[in-house]
Simulated assay, not measured.
Amino acid sequence: MQSWINLFLNQFKATTWLEWAAVLLGVAEVLLAKANKVWLYPTGIAATLISIYLLLNAALYAECLLNGYYVVMSVYGWYYWIKKRGEPPVKVSYSNRREWIITLLIVFAGWGMLYLLLINFTTSTVPVWDAWVSSTAWAGMWLLARRKIENWVLLNISNLFAIPLLFHKDLALFGLLTIVLFVVAIFGYVDWCKIIRRDQLTQTI
């Protein structure tokens, strides 16, 4: 425990402005998602572009692919949330059976694909771990883009495994950010449950 504290303190002192920007934008993104605000997407795009550069230097290649996927899904989600002018925004809801099938396919097919890519084309020392963190986050981001409440569950599965991985790779500041995101995601799930219940009550009136 003391070694982790020392690691964090040493990294805190050596943190670059790019790392601070990525962390602060990441916090802002998840807070905006918790509040169900569409501005989470431009904020998230900025955070992920910076993170790709930083994670490349740490040789977390699946994490880099994950962040590239975040950019694509953020653009898709931004469009999907807003839809066409004059149409109502997409409401928060639970996933149906088809969406759960797609989610599980993203998780397990993505895990296998990323693992094969990592062991064959990179120097990754943690291919199974890195691939799992990324594939579960892929699924969570897809659900978030469609405003499905289960996105918080998938994203927190990813966060749970990402925290020790980031500390293992000496990215203590990112590890601390992920702990914060884990806690915020719990409250995000609770808030979205309230939104769904409120909408259901409105429809019955």
Rank of each mutant, 00 (worst) to 15 (best):
M1E: 09
L105T: 09
V90S: 08
Y53S: 13
I45K: 13
G112H: 07
T103Q: 01
W132Y: 14
E63G: 13
Y76C: 01
F121G: 00
H168L: 14
W4V: 12
L104H: 04
A145D: 04
F187Q: 08
K84I: 05
L18N: 09
R198E: 15
T16S: 15
I5P: 06
L117N: 09
I196E: 00
V30H: 03
F182P: 00
T178E: 13
N36L: 02
K169C: 02
W78N: 05
A131D: 09
Q11W: 13
Y80K: 14
G188P: 01
T122N: 11
P164A: 12
Y41K: 05
I50M: 12
N159K: 00
L49Y: 03
F167E: 00
V126M: 13
F174D: 10
W4E: 14
N96L: 10
N36W: 01
E19N: 07
F108C: 09
F161G: 14
T202M: 14
L201W: 01
T123Y: 12
A33N: 10
D130Q: 08
I195G: 00
V133R: 02
F108P: 12
A131V: 11
S134A: 15
P88D: 07
L116D: 09
L7Q: 15
N151F: 00
Y61R: 04
F167S: 10
G86V: 08
A131G: 10
E29M: 07
F174M: 10
F121M: 08
L176N: 06
Y79G: 05
D130F: 03
E99P: 08
G188M: 00
L176S: 08
K13M: 11
L173D: 03
W20G: 12
L32E: 07
N151L: 01
V30S: 01
W132E: 03
T16N: 15
I106C: 04
W20C: 13
V126Q: 08
H168C: 10
Y115R: 11
P127M: 13
L66D: 06
I186W: 11
Y70L: 00
Y41Q: 11
Y61S: 11
I5G: 01
Y94D: 04
L65S: 06
I179A: 11
V72K: 00
A22G: 14
T48I: 12
V38C: 09
G68L: 14
M113Y: 13
S74Q: 10
V92L: 00
S51K: 08
L116C: 03
R98V: 07
F187K: 03
F161Q: 10
F182A: 05
A47T: 09
R146A: 01
K83F: 02
R147D: 04
I157R: 07
L65C: 03
A47I: 10
L114Q: 01
I102K: 10
F12A: 13
I101F: 14
I106G: 07
F182I: 01
R97M: 13
S158K: 05
L56D: 14
Y80R: 15
V184F: 07
K194S: 02
V184Y: 06
G77N: 06
G26S: 13
V128C: 08
L154Y: 06
V72D: 03
T123V: 12
A14M: 11
E99Y: 09
Y69A: 13
L171A: 14
P127I: 01
I163Q: 02
A162S: 11
